[in-house]
Design a protein around this nucleic acid. Structure first.
Lengths: 218, 218
DNA sequence: AAACATATTGACTAATCTAGTCAATATGTT
DNA sequence: AACATATTGACTAGATTAGTCAATATGTTT
């Protein structure tokens, strides 16, 4: 990626500002994104942006590459290590990782999704691969899941779906909480607090274990 | 709403085309929405749109009003009648209603959310009320829910959360399926099919009943 | 300190896009 | 045929666009 060496040589704070401002702006679609808005939000000059990236299209392409790399390295690959036979633990671990990523790059998952759907740029093989990769993570979880932990009178598929949806819902809450907390200037607003979620989640986890696992495996 | 009589006098097909094209375009935010894109998508002339609505701002205001009315009349009020003591049935009924609405106006819920977050227009009391209304629906469900149906060794709050998230996840799948199915020209694409979801959902519903309800109430 | 190299700025531009207009046409009604 | 209304799309003045570039700031080497 020596093409973007000028940008990559910047200090982390500036890089993050530019990346987040750009991702946020590109959520509206490639065409509707305005470089003027990006530089205003990132607090850099117009000239600087084009000095780093050359064109708007190259900036967009960079963001896609960069997001894919990050998601791949810091989410998917990491996920691979985390997967255990206990599906509840696996999905929860995955959720925490996703939350961490969303604190650093609040729009990264939305950006990749939007880029995937946009089609303003010729579909890159990398983008195409995303859908399959995401599936493969869950496939990894499921194929390694130890179904014998589950009770027998409900189809494993159903159990997994209920667990997945519940986790998914929780992750959304926790992520929203974490993102809000990270960008917050600690006004008097009333919020639930991240730790409260963690505690509550543990009780949810216990409930799921209680109702879906066999007696001996709870 | 006599202000928009010219528009309201149109035949349903044209009205729907204009509403859906507009909602879709306004998803990007009030400023970024282009009336040129709207008329192109809705297949009407530029002049016609401004004949109906006067200005872009009035179109936006109309859409907010109209969406709120529809959601209120065809979702929230209807929901009020559907609510039973059996929370599983309540949430599922609600989901079906939401799905029906999403078939007619695929972007209506996203549009209202985006309008709520946008802040391009002065915050109308109606928009402000939305958040509370939405909460009140679920409040209605929960306050009327018969907790005595549940098993005693898990907090009702946890049970309700798991059920809610599961339903929510399923509604999302079903809605996506219904929207895709409605706009589909029946190519050779492989899809799960709406009925398959219904059948699968019934099994999920049974599973939830089995694990969360007391023995006598299953 | 002087000379050089590179990073950053923001005013500037030509091209495009914007909301909104309006004379012309189409459609329907009496 | 005379009138009323619905609809069109070319048109405009002003805003926004991606991208440029001379000028300035910052840092490094001699």
């Amino acid at each position: 990626m020596q093409k973007y060496e000028k940008f990559l040589a910047l200090d982390d704070d500036k890089k993050t500002r530019i990346i987040n401002a750009s991702m946020q702006e590109f959520l509206a679609g490639y065409k509707k994104a305005s470089t003027d808005n990006i530089v205003r939000e990132a607090k850099i000059s117009k000239g600087a942006l084009f000095h780093y990236f050359g064109t708007k299209e190259q900036l967009y392409a960079f963001l896609i590459d960069y997001s894919m790399d990050i998601i791949k390295c810091e989410f998917l690959d990491l996920a691979d290590d985390l997967i255990q036979s206990d599906i509840l633990q696996s999905i929860w671990q995955l959720s925490l990782v996703k939350k961490e990523l969303s604190v650093r790059f609040p729009a990264i998952f939305d950006f990749i999704t939007s880029a995937y759907l946009d089609g303003a740029l010729p579909p890159s093989p990398e983008l195409e691969a995303l859908g399959k990769i995401r599936d493969s993570v869950f496939e990894g979880i499921y194929t390694r899941a130890d179904f014998s932990l589950f009770r027998e009178d409900i189809e494993p598929k159903i159990i997994i779906e209920i667990i997945s949806y519940t986790m998914q819902g929780y992750v959304q809450s926790v992520t929203a909480e974490a993102v809000a907390g990270a960008s917050e200037h600690h006004g008097a607003r009333v919020r639930k607090g991240y730790d409260a979620y963690l505690g509550e989640f543990e009780r949810v986890l216990n409930a799921l274990r209680l109702v879906f696992y066999r007696e001996g495996n709870r």
